[in-house]
Structures are given as structure tokens and as C-alpha cells.
Design a protein around this nucleic acid. Structure first.
Length: 552
RNA sequence: GCGCCUGUAGCUCAGUCGGAUAGAGCAACAGCCUUCUAAGCUGUGGGCCGGGGGUUCGAUUCCCUCCAGGCGCGCCA
């Protein structure tokens, strides 16, 4: 379908040009040739609204324009079976079965590369996600951000972009200082001292664990280490890295605020540059960045009256640094509670003369955990967050990732732990994985019965006459277009929806028709068809970071 | 008060750059295993797309306004 889309675009473009040359159409603007897949299959395989789009400029009936365009269509590739004009002026194309047969051969040949497209043309893109402060374990919200960011990066890779996955480590500033102090106090406690533990310090159990670890490593083994802060921060980061690794996520780069910004003085450099550009003023002893000049609703402090840099100062420097690395697009995956931050970061990019349209920010809405329909209490009281680790341990990382990707990012997510564990069609993860396992089972069965898995070139696909078979072929033809849409819109959830549809078609087909039959030629054709389905499910699950089991 | 997000079937949500009769899953009800995995399949009912205006051939989609919910508005990070 991807190929059809490109071919048809050209065909339509040529038809339009010819109509214009012959004076049958007058418009000057090049209209966008929009192709869509009709929901109703009786309306063809693919359709365009272009006749309606140009009708008003042309001041003519869209249906007449459609007729003119059709008249000039030359189907040199021989993929079109029939063309209709319908409704207010849709041009509907019915494709030849041969097109789908070609497609099956193509999938068989491309294997894991089927679905890779090249809209990215190798452009460099950075996806920065999770970036949780190393002051506590990752919680469920971070998990959603991790699943979305990782899937997004994988989608962009499949779409032909050169992608860097990056984690920004907030290892400077007051938060990590407090973490270090919290560990120090717990350590004193372990040594039997009475301590007064402040309310705004980190109270979680993990702080005590780090303190115990400190005793084991530093006091008992005499390993030399830096400050409590460094020790605690490193310990925390180690846990975070382990959590993410077990969640199936590998970053290309861990960007340390301390080492890569402050040690190099980049925050101050950035501020000096802004100063030179005249965007800085001093008030009440603090240095301010006039972000209102770039659309923010308040000016922001970069250096406090006490001489400390603000968090924002680091972020200005970080985004400047990102921009200088030459990415065509910078994607930040943030929790929705950070949306107030967007304007000032954009202001920073604009102040450094970078086009802030190259910055995309994906906001991740809250996750509401349920257990059998009943909300799991997630009080904001310290230490009571449900961690990503707990969820992974309970439902597994496959189910967790799938659930995190089932909704649009900016939509609240209800995550039912009981549902995620259920082994039935109610649970979409199992539904999709089961489709894959089932097909693997069919292939095993074929081998057992000494039916060789055929080579696509030697198969008569004309035998696939069932409407279910055609629907399945259409759906797998749609896969690259789904990748394209998800990449353009930065919406990974489209892949999960796609998978559920495809799995549905497959289960239905499987239930009603036998794949291995007494008819050798038919069996061959069907085996190649379902092998294609299996491949597409596998490819799509790979992108989402979810396993495609061969047995369940 | 200002800003951002959300509002679609009983519930949870999709809905492609503005297109054709608004979809899916769950729940409810009624059915299907002598067969390659029943972790599956089939059927039925269910809608003021939050309300009201506007833009046009056409609006769930774009604009304005109102209502409801969530979040954000520090010399915090």
C-alpha cells in the first residue's frame, strides 16, 4: 500500500498536469494529493479527495473535476483494477489482486525490514525521555514516559531517521544535595545517633538502603568515594539504569548535568551569550532572562541573588547544546505537569536563533493504577508511589509496555493490574501475542506434517479468494503507512491499535478456515499469507519493545 | 484570574491534512471446542461526538464562546 500510495500520487500528479496543459483545469496552485483508505471496503482500496479540494478554486462541480482527472490517468504499473467517482466527488481506486500478491512476495523477501520506510532520509533526531531526577526510584509515570519515548524513537528509526535516545541526568542542584544529606542522616541513625529528620528530606526506604550500602562499601571495605551526594546519586542512578534495562530500554547517551554542563561551564557561557544579545537584566540582585520577549508570560531568573544558578539556567544551556549538535528535530518527552515549562524553553531556543519549531514536546498524562477496577491509592506522600519495578514484577514488562502505549500520550491512562495479568482476549497484550504464537504453532504443525514452508515465488496466490484473506492482505499492506502516520504525528499508540486490528483479523480467519488442508497449492498460499502476518506482528511488536513469543 | 490538556456508546478509548452511513475493546445478552493453541470465534442491543455560535459543498475534526474535569502559573527542582 505504501508503494501504491507513492505510485498513485505520481499518477494523479501527472493526470492533473496533463489536464492543466490541455486547458481542462485552470488552477495554478499545486494541490496536495491526499490519499486515504476508505473505511468501507465497497468504496475501494484507496481514495483521493483531491477533486473536492480543488473544486472551489475551479468553481466547478467536484464530480466533473473527478471525471476530468480520471480521463488523464495512465496506469503504467498496471495496479488499478477499476476507478469510481462516488459521493460528493471521491475518486475511489480498486486495486488488482496481483498487487497484493506482489506484496506477499515482498514481505517474504524483506522479512524484518518490511515496514521500514525512508521519510526521515537519514535526518538526525534526538529523543530525550524519562530524565527522572536520581533522587528516588522510577515510578509508574516514568514508566509510561519510558515506553512512549522508546517506542517513538524506534518508530522514527523505522521511518528512516537517525535517532539518538538520551537521558538527561539532573545530578546537580538542591535535590541531589538533599538526597545526599538524607543518606547522611540515615547513616547517623544506623550508627545509633538520634537524628532530626527534616520533613522535606527523602524518606523512602531506598535512602536507608543506600546508607547500608555505604557502610558495606566505604566503612567496611574502605573503598574511597566522594561526597555523600555523589555516592547517593550514583547508587540511585544504578537502580534507575537497572530498572530501565529490565524494562527493555537502552539509551544511547546519559547526559550528566554536572559533568557535561557545569564542569564545562556551559551554563555560564550560555548566560554570557544571552547577555551579549541583550536579553539579560538585573533586578533585586538576580539575573533575569527576558523570556517575555519570546512569548513567555513571565521573565525568568537564571542566577539567583545568592549567586546560585536556577534549574532553568541548566536547561537553557542543555537545549542550546542540543540545538548545536545539529539535530533536525529535538523531541522532549515530559510529564504533563511540566507543560508550564514549554514557553520558557522555546524562548531560550529562539533567543539563540534556533527555530523552535524543530522542538517537539510530548506531554505524558497521568497513569491511574487500578486493581480489578478499584483505584490503587497513589498518595503524594513520600515513599508511597507505586514504582515501575513493582508493576514490572507484577504484570511483566511486555504487558506494562503495551498498556502504557494503548492511549494517546495526552490522554489519562487507566492501567488495570488485574486486566494486564489476565490470560484471555480481554487482555489486549495476550490477544496480540497469542496471534503470533498461534501462527508459529501452525508453522510447527506444517513442518511436523512434512509440509515444507513454501517460497513465496513458487506459490499461486490466486487461490486466496476469501474476503477474509483479502482483508488480511489489505491490513498488512497498511503497515508501512501506519509507521508513516505514527512517525509524522509522533504517536506510538497507533501501532498498538494497528496490532489489535491485525490480530483480530487473524484470529477470525484462523477460526473459520484451516490453513493446512489436503490441497497442497492452497496450503502453500495460505502458509505464505500467515507467515506474512506473523512477520508484521513481530516487526510491530519489536518497535514497541514487546516480545513476540513463539509459544504461549 | 491567566495558560495548557481533556470532554465521542453503560465503562475505557480510537477516529488519518475537513470527507462518504461516527468505530473498537470491555461490560450486558444469546450462541460456538471430535479439527493447525478455546489465551480463540459468531451474533444482538447501545450515540444531542459536553452546550451554543461561526467558517463551507461538507465539521467529531478548524475558529469564537460557555460549561465540566485535570494540570500548571516560585530567586523550587
Amino acid at each position: 500500500m505504501w508503494i501504491v500510495k507513492e505510485t498513485l500520487s505520481n499518477i494523479l500528479y501527472n493526470a492533473l498536469t496533463e489536464a492543466k496543459e490541455k486547458g481542462e483545469l485552470k488552477i495554478k496552485d499545486e494541490p496536495l494529493i491526499v490519499l486515504e483508505i476508505p473505511k468501507d471496503e465497497t468504496k475501494g482500496d484507496i481514495a483521493t479527495t483531491m477533486a473536492m479540494a480543488i473544486a472551489s478554486a475551479e468553481k466547478r462541480n467536484p464530480r466533473d473535476i473527478a471525471q476530468i482527472i480520471i480521463k488523464h490517468i495512465k496506469d503504467e504499473a498496471g495496479i488499478i483494477d477499476k476507478i469510481d467517482v462516488a459521493g460528493p466527488g471521491f475518486i475511489n481506486f480498486f486495486l488488482k489482486d496481483g498487487y497484493y500478491h506482489q506484496l506477499l512476495k515482498q514481505i517474504d523477501k524483506q522479512g524484518k525490514d518490511y515496514g521500514r520506510i525512508d521519510i526521515g532520509k537519514g535526518e538526525k533526531v534526538q529523543v530525550e525521555f524519562v530524565s527522572a531526577n536520581p533522587t528516588g526510584p522510577l515510578h509508574v509515570g516514568h514508566g509510561r514516559g519510558a515506553a512512549v519515548g522508546d517506542a517513538l524513537a524506534n518508530i522514527l528509526k523505522a521511518a528512516g531517521y537517525d535517532v539518538v535516545k538520551e537521558y538527561y541526568i539532573n545530578d546537580a542542584g538542591r535535590q541531589v544535595y538533599i538526597l545526599g544529606e538524607s543518606v547522611r542522616l540515615r547513616l547517623d541513625e544506623l550508627h545509633g545517633k538520634k537524628v532530626d529528620f527534616p520533613d522535606d528530606y527523602y524518606k523512602g526506604e531506598y535512602v536507608k538502603e543506600i546508607a547500608k550500602d555505604y557502610i558495606a562499601k566505604v566503612e567496611e571495605k574502605g573503598i574511597l568515594l566522594g561526597t555523600f551526594q555523589e555516592f547517593a546519586c550514583e547508587a540511585m542512578l544504578k537502580d534507575i539504569k537497572k530498572d530501565l534495562k529490565d524494562f527493555g530500554i537502552e539509551f544511547n547517551r546519559w547526559f550528566s548535568e554536572n559533568k557535561e554542563l557545569h564542569d564545562k561551564g556551559l551554563a555560564l557561557t550560555a548566560i554570557h551569550e544571552l547577555e551579549k544579545k541583550g536579553f539579560i537584566f538585573v533586578e533585586d540582585g538576580a539575573k533575569w532572562f527576558r523570556t517575555t520577549q519570546f512569548g513567555d508570560d513571565k521573565d525568568r531568573v537564571l542566577i539567583k541573588a545568592d549567586g546560585q544558578l536556577t534549574y532553568f539556567a541548566s536547561d537553557v544551556a542543555y537545549h542550546k547544546e542540543k540545538a548545536e549538535r545539529g539535530f533536525s528535530t529535538i523531541i522532549n518527552v515530559w510529564g504533563a505537569d511540566h507543560h508550564g515549562y514549554e514557553a520558557r524553553v522555546r524562548a531560550a531556543l529562539k533567543a539563540f536563533d534556533y527555530n523552535d519549531r524543530n522542538l517537539k514536546i510530548i506531554f505524558i498524562q497521568l497513569v491511574k493504577l487500578l486493581r480489578g477496577g478499584v483505584p490503587v491509592p497513589m498518595g503524594k506522600r513520600e515513599g508511597e508511589f507505586v514504582t515501575l519495578r513493582q508493576v514490572m514484577d507484577e504484570v511483566g514488562s511486555d504487558a506494562a509496555r503495551f498498556f502504557f502505549l494503548m492511549r494517546r500520550s495526552d490522554s489519562h491512562l487507566d492501567f488495570d493490574l488485574e486486566l494486564a495479568k489476565k490470560q484471555s482476549s480481554e487482555n489486549p497484550v495476550y490477544y496480540v501475542q497469542y496471534a503470533h504464537a498461534r501462527l508459529c504453532s501452525v508453522e510447527r504443525q506444517a513442518v511436523e506434517r512434512a509440509v515444507k514452508i513454501p517460497v513465496a515465488d513458487s506459490v499461486d496466490f490466486g487461490l486466496l479468494k476469501l474476503p477474509e484473506e483479502r482483508n488480511i492482505m489489505k491490513q498488512i499492506a497498511l503497515y508501512p503507512i501506519t509507521i508513516e502516520g505514527a512517525a509524522r504525528a509522533l504517536e506510538p499508540h497507533r501501532i498498538t491499535f494497528y496490532l489489535q486490528n491485525l490480530a483480530g483479523l487473524l484470529h477470525n480467519y484462523y477460526f473459520h478456515h484451516r490453513i493446512i488442508t489436503d490441497d497442497k497449492a492452497l496450503t502453500d498460499a495460505r502458509l505464505v499469507l500467515v507467515k506474512g502476518v506473523r512477520q508484521v506482528i513481530k516487526n510491530a511488536l519489536d518497535i514497541l519493545g514487546i516480545k513476540a513469543p513463539e509459544k504461549m
